[in-house]
Amino acid sequence: MDENTVRALMSTVELIATTLDAAPDSWRDQLQAIRNITASLQLLDETPNEGRKQWQLPLISVFQRVAYADADNGGVMDIANWCLRQTLTLLHVYPEDVDLLTLVGQNWLLRSQKSLASIHHAERGSSSSGASQGPPLSQSEEQRLATAAAIEAEDRLHTADYVEARGTLLPAIEYLKRAVDAAQTQEKLTGSLLSTAAEAYMSLGNVSSPRVNRQYFHDALVYLRTACEIPNYDLPLHLQQYLDEYGPLDSRN
């Protein structure tokens, strides 16, 4: 690809990013321009080239941002799949690149959001409809209901949304862990990366059996504590609340 083509390509990417910053809901307006590019552009690198990587990374990052702008409803999968293919291609050339590992992990994490949103919606509906008013229950009745609820929760783990969520979150934590490990080795660790990894581990814990999810929650807390030690970084509110609630208890185990 010649310099003029690269320059024009990057101008388009920068314009898309600037437009999204100013009007996040405009992502649909960017789809045709992105599809025009992805229809003919395939990254086929086999040897490292820092000059090429300097425009390839922002391009994939911006396109992935558009692809998952509405992740709860499934995202734009043709563009999301293109981003994943290109990133994995580059990862063969740069296997320890923190940004590439993060992009792959984020792609899988964002891919899980549709099934996670469906699970959250179903559980919220179940909890509200299950609320009952009546006389206090006996201890044996409470135990019976608790046992039934545990069996029902275990059964839900085998339904489609839970299976799909785990299937996308397992590669998410794999690549995000690799990204964190590489960033630590290269002294590039950021609070944002740690928070993203923690989010993936928490989500996987929430859709896994209590027999195995304790380690996922533990790893999430370790990442959140480490993120708190990053200068000038503040955890997102929901992660700070999670750390405040579960972190002190976990640290005593």
Rank of each mutant, 00 (worst) to 15 (best):
Tyr175Trp: 12
Leu176Arg: 02
Ile151Glu: 14
Ala183Gln: 10
Thr102Glu: 14
Glu199Ser: 15
Val76Ser: 01
Thr196Ala: 06
Thr147Cys: 02
Gln113Pro: 01
Met77Asn: 09
Tyr94Pro: 09
Arg85Asn: 11
Pro171Thr: 03
Leu103Gln: 11
Gln186Val: 07
Lys114Glu: 13
Glu96Ser: 12
Ala197Lys: 00
Pro136Thr: 13
Ala198Ser: 15
Met77Gln: 12
Ser209Val: 04
Ala69Lys: 00
Gly74His: 03
Gln106Asp: 08
Val98Gly: 04
Asn73Lys: 06
Gln133Phe: 12
Tyr68Gln: 01
Asn81Met: 10
Asn81Trp: 07
Thr168Val: 01
Ala131Gly: 08
Ser208Leu: 07
Tyr175Cys: 06
Arg166Asn: 11
Ala149Gly: 07
Ala172Val: 05
Thr159Met: 10
Ser115Leu: 00
Leu137Trp: 10
Lys188Arg: 11
Glu123Ala: 11
Trp82Val: 06
Leu103Ile: 08
Val76Asp: 14
Thr147Ile: 04
Trp82Leu: 08
Ala148Gln: 15
Arg178Glu: 13
His120Lys: 10
Ser192Tyr: 02
Gln139Asn: 11
His158Asp: 14
Glu152Asp: 14
Ala149Asp: 15
Thr87Cys: 12
Pro136Tyr: 09
Ala150Ser: 15
Ala179Asn: 13
Gln133Asn: 11
Leu109Arg: 01
Gln133Glu: 13
Arg144Thr: 10
Asp181Glu: 15
Ala80Lys: 00
Ser138Gln: 05
Glu154Thr: 12
Tyr94Lys: 04
Asn107Ala: 11
Glu152Thr: 12
Arg166Leu: 08
Thr102Trp: 02
Lys114Thr: 05
Leu193Phe: 04
Thr102Asp: 14
Arg144Gly: 12
Asn107Trp: 03
His120Val: 08
Ala183Arg: 02
Leu169Ala: 11
Thr168Phe: 01
Leu176Gln: 07
Ser127Pro: 02
Glu142Val: 06
Pro135Trp: 05
Thr159Ala: 06
Thr196Leu: 07
Asp155Glu: 13
Trp82Gln: 10
Tyr175Ala: 09
Val104Lys: 01
Leu100Tyr: 08
Ser129Tyr: 04
Tyr162Trp: 09
Asp97Cys: 04
Glu187Gly: 07
Thr168Ala: 05
Arg156Ile: 03
Arg211Lys: 14
Arg85Ile: 05
Leu137Lys: 15
Thr147Gln: 15
Gly74Asn: 07
Gly125Pro: 01
Gln133Trp: 13
Asp161Ile: 02
Glu174His: 10
Val104Ile: 14
Gly75Val: 05
Pro135Ile: 07
Gln86Ser: 12
Val76Glu: 15
Met202Cys: 15
Asn206Trp: 00
Ala172Ile: 08
Ser127His: 07
Ala150His: 09
Ala149Val: 08
Val98Met: 02
Ala80Leu: 04
His92Ser: 11
Leu88Ser: 13
Asp161Val: 01
Ala198Gly: 12
Ala131Leu: 14
Leu189Asn: 07
Ser132Lys: 13
Gly191Met: 06
His158Thr: 15
Pro210Asp: 14
Glu164Ala: 13
Arg156Asn: 13
Gly134Ala: 15
Glu154Asn: 05
Leu103Phe: 00
Ala183Thr: 10
Gly105Thr: 12
Ala149Ser: 13
Gln113Thr: 03
Ser126Cys: 05
Glu96Asn: 15
Asp78Pro: 04
Ser129Trp: 02
Ile151Gln: 13
Tyr162Met: 05
Val163Asp: 02
Trp108Gly: 03
Met77His: 04
Tyr162Ile: 06
Gly75Ala: 05
Val163Ile: 09
Ala153Met: 06
Tyr201Arg: 04
Ser138Trp: 03
Leu194Trp: 05
